[in-house]
Amino acid sequence: MIVLREVSKTYQRGAVAIHALRGVNLVIESGEFLAITGKSGCGKSTLLHLIGGLEPPSAGQIVVAGRDLSRLSEVELTLFRRDLVGVVFQTFNLLPLLTLEENVALPRVLQGASFHQARDEARQWLAEVGLSDRRQHKPHQVSGGEMQRAAIARALINRPAVILADEPTGNLDSGTGAGILELFAHLHQHHRHTVIIVTHAPEAAAHAGRVLRLHDGQIQP
């Protein structure tokens, strides 16, 4: 379960303070598929980053899987991200010099698995996202949709409790984007991870169990 209590985030840009989130209270149940929507700059991505422990809140408390993120040290936060969180980015963020298989295996190696073990698991996940025949390709040798599928496999390989997806279809054409959303839905159904997708694509919301709208850093009722 994920619990946010009175969470705020303010960025200081010189003399100007930008309030990205203002007093957000939210509970997300384990295994839930949540879509967060809203206009650009409303605080969607910031909310995702805070839940993933990618940056700290300016105020409030965030508890994920029983861990109060504000009480975790830098190293504990790193381990939290490694073991409990899988992140999917809008721009895929695959390492260009590694093959798709190596990209997917990377989080497992970071977790301490041997490369051979990690590679075997990566192959299984690549098969699950339909990329068995592309595993030896480098990112620039495959399409955007395939890159995003590999990124999803990478997010899943450590069997995290939470999958965070930041505009996962933003860089894809509508057909490919729909395929990715279906993949998320399919994986959620099979593995019962908690999935939180930030999007402003209305069709993404159709796959989610709950849709949350953000406006000016606050959740709209």
Binding site: T78, R81, V87, L106, P107, L110
Partner: peptide, 16 residues
């Protein structure tokens, strides 16, 4: 830098 940020997101520790 971006690659490092990504690795850190995936769980690479500062020591690593």
């Amino acid at each position: 830098r971006r690659e490092i940020g990504l690795c850190r997101t995936l769980g690479m520790t500062p020591g690593q």
